[in-house]
Design a protein around this nucleic acid. Structure first.
Lengths: 138, 138
DNA sequence: AATTAAAACTGTAATTAGTACAATTCTGAA
DNA sequence: TTCAGAATTGTACTAATTACAGTTTTAATT
């Protein structure tokens, strides 16, 4: 089910973000994919619908959305940063063959690990690296 | 305790890597720090001892060592890749204030999570993001 | 010790992701 | 309708990393 512009607008407003048409398009794009796209990938795909969109807007909007916690950044390898609208908490599997990123279960207990005195974690990322099914078979 | 050149040579040979003086210096550097340095940081620090060292060699050596599993890459944010000689398995805490990376305990059970059918993980990374003690206090 | 082929190293040039910034456009309140 | 602030745009720039060609080193063989 695809989120309506009104729903996307609400999410933005809830986080104190002014809902411009570009921001709605970018967040909407992230909400309807599980592909963990890069900024450039988002830019290229949205260009068809919004021919005046600029790369700078995509980058700055993504930074804004990450800063206010609406979307999360996926830094799974040293390559381009990817972005994720996390419906539910999950971990990521990075296939070193095809470079795709898959959502997998978040292991239990990760969030409650003992950190050194005085350290407080605001978020946790778990990445598995290996071969996905398709790459395993070939 | 600092590893001797002979010990470093052994580690390299065990992994099928020809122990050149540059490779010994780079691996030795990583073995005696817990700072998770970037390639450029390693380059700058080693330059004092090896004035003819080139950045390209540092990058290619690090790629080589990561590929053969001697050192691990730490991609904790979108910035430069960092490198780690992991004596024992551990997770990483990334301070969003000072940008330092700290070793912390690896939570139990992370490695035994249920992955989708046909997926096999070769390695696992766990990153916590937040404020370290010093940044918390200031 | 001399020869030599392969491997490793070096330095420069190129590539790529991402940011800075100034100019333009949009928006919504007065 | 006016206008100020916010958002967007496009270009120029920076920084991390890689490609590549030429040089040096290594180590085996004669």
């Amino acid at each position: 089910m695809k989120a309506s512009p009104a729903e996307i607008t609400d999410i933005l407003r809830c986080h104190g973000v002014n809902p411009s048409s570009q921001r709605i398009a970018i967040l909407g794009y992230l909400m309807q994919t599980r592909e963990h796209p890069t900024a450039d990938c988002i830019y290229r795909d949205l260009l068809a619908d919004k021919p005046t969109l600029s790369r700078t807007t995509v980058y700055s909007t993504l930074n804004l959305l990450v800063d206010c916690g609406v979307v999360s950044a996926v830094d799974v390898d040293g390559e381009s940063r990817r972005y994720d609208y996390p419906l539910t908490p999950h971990a990521h599997f990075h296939c070193t063959g095809c470079q795709k990123v898959f959502d997998v279960d978040m292991p239990v207990g990760v969030e409650s690990v003992m950190l050194p005195q005085g350290f407080t974690a605001k978020s946790t990322s778990v990445y598995y690296h290996g071969f996905c099914r398709d790459c395993m078979e070939n």
